[in-house]
């Protein structure tokens, strides 16, 4: 019963966000530009580097899941900006005086980021198809991709929310957002395999949740692609990280009303 109530509260927030997403498709399509640039320019050039050990797949196929993970990261990591905006307006305050559970509010926001992530997935699938990259067009792997994308979006949007709760102003957030995204991206297995990295970077990459998203996507998305850790571990780690973020964010979120 209370569980039911909890999910209804989250759904209420997600549905409201969904209205906004549907209403502003231009934002979605402007987000398509980055993956196109990465795959068409960076991907084509790096395909000529013979020494990158990508297993049984071409370099382009190898990096495609990394680019999807990247667009999930980039679209989720600036989520905190919207929350700071809502705080400056008084929308956060209005949500917080309702009897809704704080973590339900945070989960609702995270799930709406998941919906945005799904649009990214559709975009990257379309680009990959145009570039003739061999994808796994089977129902179970596609569902795995969607789940991984939702989880990844939830992780990074909630991480972003946590930062917003700490810094509280748009200016400081922009600074930190810029500083964080590039290291998260480059210290991961998104565009080169872990084996190529120096040891210290391997450690960082193993601690980076983005690596597990990429690893799961590589298995589920690409024909001949393999997960290094196994899907169970990938999903397990992502779920655990998200849960932790959710707990922290739900504690910090009420502080935004101050």
């Amino acid at each position: 019963m209370t569980m039911m109530r909890f999910f209804k509260e989250s759904a209420a927030v997600s549905v409201a966000e969904l209205h906004k997403i549907v209403r502003d498709p231009t934002e979605m399509f402007s987000r398509a530009i980055q993956p196109v640039l990465w795959l068409v320019i960076f991907g084509q050039v790096f395909s000529r580097v013979r020494d990158i050990p990508t297993g049984d797949v071409t370099y382009l196929a190898f990096m495609t899941p990394g680019i999807l993970a990247q667009s999930v990261l980039f679209s989720a990591i600036f989520y905190g900006i919207a929350v700071i905006w809502e705080r400056d307006l008084g929308i956060v305050q209005k949500l917080l005086v309702s009897p809704a559970h704080r973590s339900a509010l945070v989960l609702g926001k995270a799930l709406s980021a998941g919906l945005r992530g799904l649009v990214q997935a559709v975009i990257v699938y379309a680009i990959a198809w145009l570039l003739d990259i061999h994808l796994r067009w089977e129902i179970i792997p596609i569902l795995e991709v969607l789940l991984a994308v939702i989880l990844g979006s939830c992780i990074f949007s909630t991480f972003s929310l946590i930062i917003a709760c700490i810094v509280k102003t748009r200016e400081r957030f922009m600074g930190i957002g810029q500083v964080l995204t590039m290291p998260l991206f480059f210290a991961s297995n998104a565009i080169y395999p872990l084996e190529m990295m120096p040891d210290w970077l391997k450690v960082v990459a193993r601690l980076n949740p983005l690596s597990y998203l990429v690893d799961a996507l590589r298995d589920a998305m690409i024909l001949g692609g393999h997960s290094a850790h196994g899907l169970l571990l990938d999903f397990g780690i992502m779920a655990a990280v998200f849960l932790l973020m959710l707990v922290v964010a739900a504690r910090l979120y009420p502080g935004l009303a101050r």
């Binding site: 209804k8 209205h19 307006l89 949500l95």
Partner: peptide, 28 residues
């Protein structure tokens, strides 16, 4: 309780119905 903050608290990117529906759902 009900509360209207000093700042603006209705969401401009939503319609009146959507704003009200969100509140109604949060109050169960």
């Amino acid at each position: 309780i009900g509360y209207v903050p000093q700042m603006l608290s209705a969401d401009g990117a939503l319609t009146a119905i959507e704003n009200l529906t969100l509140s109604a759902r949060l109050y169960g």
